[in-house]
Design a protein around this nucleic acid. Structure first.
Lengths: 216, 216
DNA sequence: TTTCCCTCGAGGGATAACCCTGGGGTTCCG
DNA sequence: CGGAACCCCAGGGTTATCCCTCGAGGGAAA
């Protein structure tokens, strides 16, 4: 008997192409969706054995697919989920693979060399295994990543830094947060210190802090 | 008789999926390639009627496909070229559509709602027409884009701004450019003026200028 | 409890970053 | 020959951004 599979991907072209490829590989495609909400409805109506889920989808175009995967895992534990993304999204990925990694997979579109590889991965997750791209594994095991200077900031300091990075003045930040300009100055000084920005005549620490913040 | 088509796309999954979709739509897929160079070789050996080319491909992952399209247009004028990209790359696109836009197309993967739309577009470019996504058209006609505030900067001002955006102080910039700190101040003031950054107590103009610069 | 960090504020001071005006020079264009 | 723009500099001023130190209050951990 064939394995039933559903697909969620915002690109109609990719979605349809994938459907045909999987049918050729012996799967039965029982549902196609362009966003997470639609797929959730399809799954609820007729749960397939495995769902292929893209991560970046409408409406948020950020980590919608990851949230959908977590939700499917909770509401329909029998449905295997294979995430298929362009990039590695480690941020919320740990949440998904931390608890029960069974029947779950995460592959990168660019690193799937042939349709057969995907078909094989689908069979494996449907059978209960966990399928991870080596790149994803590397990112997951290296988490929690060694704390960068930005992680050493206190919550309030981080809040101030985001406003600094929006181009606010110290006074403007004070008004927004209901603080004194003096207090904001203190936070800014603390931020510089924790970011390792020593006082030099050649550069502007405020801009440097903004750059560090923007670069992650 | 069926239309012969070749496909270049770095994603094997997308490439293969597209191939089966097109074959279902009545095309004959005579070649698949994962990068531009490979496709150029295939085209040289057995020129198809139309080539579907992704823009971001190895090895540069920038505008390889655009360069390939221009090259195909020159070396094999009889081969229609349909660019299929994720984003609009206006920068070198004008070069392609400026001269002879016949047998050329540019569609966005996300905006192709159904495989039939792509099939239709392929038939049209193979017939000599030009097929452009409305979004692409809008970008092309608005080029040269109305000069943004950044374009009004003088060369020297732009030079100063890039150094400001690297976190340099006025003195540091003066040292690097062999100027006086006073002169740099003058440029910075000019930059603020041209960027329309008026003096307000709520924000830091230097950071705002950096943000504008970074956002292109 | 002691200790530490976070939060918030203050006084007092240094200086970098800004404003203004004015002046030199060049090039290019009408 | 004017303008007009760019490039470069200077004097003299205001203020925001930084420095230092000191302190109060709270919560969390040792």
């Amino acid at each position: 008997m064939t394995v039933q599979v559903m697909i969620a991907d915002d690109s109609a072209l990719f979605r349809e192409g994938l459907a045909v490829l999987l049918e050729r590989a012996g799967f039965t495609v029982t549902g196609l969706a362009g966003d997470g909400e639609t797929l959730a409805g399809l799954v609820r109506a007729r749960p397939p054995e495995v769902a292929v889920v893209d991560i970046r989808m409408p409406p948020s175009y950020t980590v919608e697919g990851l949230e959908l995967a977590i939700r499917l895992r909770r509401e329909h534990p029998s449905v295997a989920v294979l995430l298929l993304s362009n990039h590695v999204e480690t941020h919320h990925a740990g949440e998904l693979f931390g608890g029960a990694p069974h029947r779950t997979g995460y592959l990168l579109k660019d690193r799937v060399g042939a349709p057969d590889e995907l078909a094989d991965a689908l069979h494996r997750v449907a059978a209960g295994q966990t399928v991870l791209d080596p790149t994803v594994v590397a990112r997951l095991v290296s988490r929690p990543r060694e704390p960068g200077p930005l992680d050493r900031l206190s919550p309030r300091e981080r809040e101030v830094l985001t406003l600094v990075a929006e181009g606010r003045s110290n006074q403007g930040i004070a008004d927004l947060l209901g603080l004194t300009q003096k207090t904001v100055e203190g936070y800014v000084r603390g931020i510089f210190g924790k970011l390792g920005l020593t006082d030099t005549a050649a550069d502007n620490r405020r801009v440097l802090a903004v750059l560090r913040y923007l670069r992650g």
